[in-house]
Design a protein around this nucleic acid. Structure first.
Lengths: 195, 195
DNA sequence: CGAGTTATTGACCGACCGTTCCAAAACATA
DNA sequence: TATGTTTTGGAACGGTCGGTCAATAACTCG
């Protein structure tokens, strides 16, 4: 009944994600976003409301694509310990890819916006909390299967792994090499889950 | 021989540090900086060159004040293991203070500028590398005194602690509670250095 | 084909960005 | 007190920011 959208919404969101991922929210200008998305101002405001609206949708999309992989690995029922190792291994393995060297969009967002925009920051924090819970659940299963030392509670172990993962992503954004990052995490994994 | 400076340089740098710490480099506007420093544009450009020059001096000042505490604790010769524990303990203890809830200025800087300003990012990275080395040295001493398991090399242990500390600071900026953070790190410390 | 609806386009808005510049002010020295 | 030097204060610069708006284009349906 009217003129149809002339661009692919998901494709545009992907392009916007790259810009936000690289520069952060504040430092991503409308002009950069429009160029990357290959649309123009009016279309963006008609489709996403404003810059914040676009960002929120990007965050959601990030969860559905990037985070989904993590959840799948951490939900490994047969070998939960291996699931945990895999999450770190995949992160290291994918480092040479451009996207991975940009760190985690959610971590970056929390770090950038926590003191200035509570709403956006909380949006990202909430999604990160889900990952932490997935770590904790995986630890509980690993302990139940005697794959993980019970000297530490599953709750503590999961939080520790989450903290380690955050450090890993921040350091990777900072340009750390794969070898360097591997040193930062393997000892912890072997201590916790002697293979 | 001429008109003397009408403001205290160190005091002005402290004020600028608070602004950069809170908002990051890009999102700190000249106006915010000038207001906080209680000087005006001309004075800032005469004294510091430009925004980047001011930031560099702030980073140096940060190292001389904030990081100095960390180095001192990590250089504990008599009880290196306690020195390591103290660094984490102090970080947690100081969390209620406003400044500590802003994370680490160097970590924030690397995370913000790594993909867009190599020079400033490297400036911060270099200073963080010194902390990592201090961790490694402390681990070597702790192992020599049989305070730390030798199952992991001092190099690996130090890098792991550094990674954990980075995660800790990022999560603290994100608003995590002291209790939450404590859970994220104590198991690692006790596994590494059974007290 | 004509009417109705929505998307696209690009000019335009006021506000703010970092930076420059210069006259006025405040000091040390003669 | 007069001179030289440096800081201070604030107006002004071009550029970019996020956001708005009205005219035009492209489609569906009657």
């Amino acid at each position: 009944m009217a003129r149809p959208l002339q661009f692919d919404r998901q494709q545009a969101l992907d392009a916007a994600m790259q810009v936000f991922w690289l520069h952060g929210f504040c430092s991503s200008s409308l002009q950069q976003l429009l160029t990357a998305m290959e649309i123009n101002r009016g279309s963006l405001y008609a489709a996403f409301g404003d810059k914040v609206g676009l960002f929120k949708e990007v965050i959601d999309k990030y969860q559905c694509t990037m985070q989904a992989v993590v959840f799948e690995l951490l939900n490994n029922e047969d070998d939960p310990a291996q699931g945990i190792r895999d999450v770190f291994e995949v992160t290291l393995f994918c480092l040479p890819e451009d996207a991975m060297a940009l760190g985690c969009l959610l971590v970056n967002t929390v770090n950038e916006l926590s003191p200035i925009d509570i709403e956006l920051s909380n949006l990202a924090s909430a999604k990160l909390a889900l990952v932490e819970q997935a770590f904790i659940n995986a630890c509980a299963r690993a302990q139940a299967q005697n794959q993980m030392s019970k000297a530490v509670s599953a709750d503590d172990a999961g939080k520790m792994l989450m903290n380690t993962m955050i450090g890993l992503r921040v350091q990777s954004r900072g340009g750390a090499s794969e070898a360097h990052l591997r040193q930062s995490i393997t000892p912890l994994l072997t201590m916790l889950m002697p293979s």
